[in-house]
Nucleic acid binder design. Structure first.
Lengths: 221, 221
DNA sequence: AACTGTGCGTTAATAAATTGACAATATTGT
DNA sequence: ACAATATTGTCAATTTATTAACGCACAGTT
């Protein structure tokens, strides 16, 4: 069993995917799985799965494989899904509202406050969470100490708001605004740049079509 | 100038970010920039920027750097943002509706149809685009030939719907459902797994806090 | 209980990505 | 016009990530 010391971000990003697949396996009633079989299902190599999991400890058994339940629990623990991070949402527009439904069923996070510039009384999100005005932010943070902020505000206000939130004790951001946040290195930022994602898709689609066309014309010659 | 032949996905994923920064520079009225200066602003090495750009051609000039306008145009072209892909959205719930606002201002894509199981008459999205019932999908596709589909439907229907859409000529998916799509290799899939993203953030926040605590207690000894 | 085969954890080999170095060539200033 | 400076494009070195190889431990079988 290796040390936890600085696991590669690439490995960390694969963990939720493992977790997702294991949850599916659990649902299907499968109780054990080998790295080989899991690799086949996930489109990876068995070697990579074993390597990845061994960054956190040896969860398998030689000649048997991995116990699905146990491995799922381990990853849950590794990802700290058993600890609920108090979170606030800044900007409750269309996107923010859409995210709340994810958040209420997500493990490892608990939405405890919603903030918006104009505090519309949206009660259909959750009866216990009405949207507060941004003026109440300081008071709220000093009382409830949220750990992470979900940033769904227009780009032009994002940096300023993020800096303010860091001063109020926020440790991490789930950033949906279209700018990069410039904050001290101890603050975690997970960007969801939808525009970037869409451009990547476009590039890949066009490239694929071009490749198919060329292959087609070569075949016709 | 190197060939375009199979540029690494990592490079492709960095292009939209370059584009974003260049757009900002343009707005600020900056007309030229060196790889060194851009690297500093983006938190990369100058070498990487030069290497990345050279996958597509030499856009810079020795002793001068890069012309912001020209480079921006080149990346726009590389990402095919000058070509508008016709797209349809499947599932117009909260998330879908939130995405439409992005899509109407995004380059390189044009939303031409919205579909949902129950075709609510949502006219506030766009007067020209009312939501059609899923039964009209086949007819619509054979007439308007959309290239990509934005999948915002519950996970349990995603795979079946995706397969159906491929049969109708869809070449790429922007997938917001929480499952992996299993399709032929020529079909492009860009997953936006929000759950995975959130778990990654959680891991990083917890890890950072733990590191700070340990550093603190070491300091106190 | 001995034997056979499976499959993990780990180390080694390979491949990929990033960074560094430098010649070539432009710009800038005098 | 010429030297000094800047900065690219490219190649080489380094680092990181992935894949393969293999010994050892356990499961399953007879």
């Amino acid at each position: 069993m290796k040390q936890n010391e600085s696991v590669s971000l690439l490995v960390v990003r694969r963990l939720p995917r493992y977790y997702r697949f294991l949850t599916e396996l659990k649902k299907s009633g499968i109780v054990r799985i080998s790295s080989k079989e899991l690799a086949k299902r996930m489109g990876l190599t068995a070697s990579q799965i074993r390597q990845d999991l061994n960054c956190f400890g040896g969860f398998g058994q030689q000649g048997y494989g991995y116990n699905v339940d146990q491995l799922s629990d381990e990853i849950e623990r590794i990802l700290y899904l058993d600890i609920s991070m108090p979170a606030i949402m800044i900007g409750v527009g269309n996107l923010g509202r859409a995210l709340t439904s994810y958040l209420f069923e997500a493990k490892g996070i608990k939405l405890i406050g919603l903030f918006d510039k104009n505090p519309k009384n949206i009660t259909d999100i959750n009866p216990d969470l009405n949207v507060m005005g941004i003026t109440k932010l300081d008071e709220f943070c000093s009382e409830y100490h949220p750990m992470v902020a979900i940033l769904c505000i227009p780009s032009e206000h994002a940096q300023q708001m993020a800096s303010r939130l860091v001063a109020l004790g926020i440790k991490g951001f789930w950033n949906f605004s279209h700018v990069e946040l410039h904050l001290e290195p101890t603050i975690c930022v997970e960007n969801v740049h939808l525009g970037d994602s869409l451009m990547t898709l476009g590039f890949n689609v066009h490239t694929e079509i071009k490749a198919l066309e060329e292959a087609g014309s070569r075949g016709n010659k």
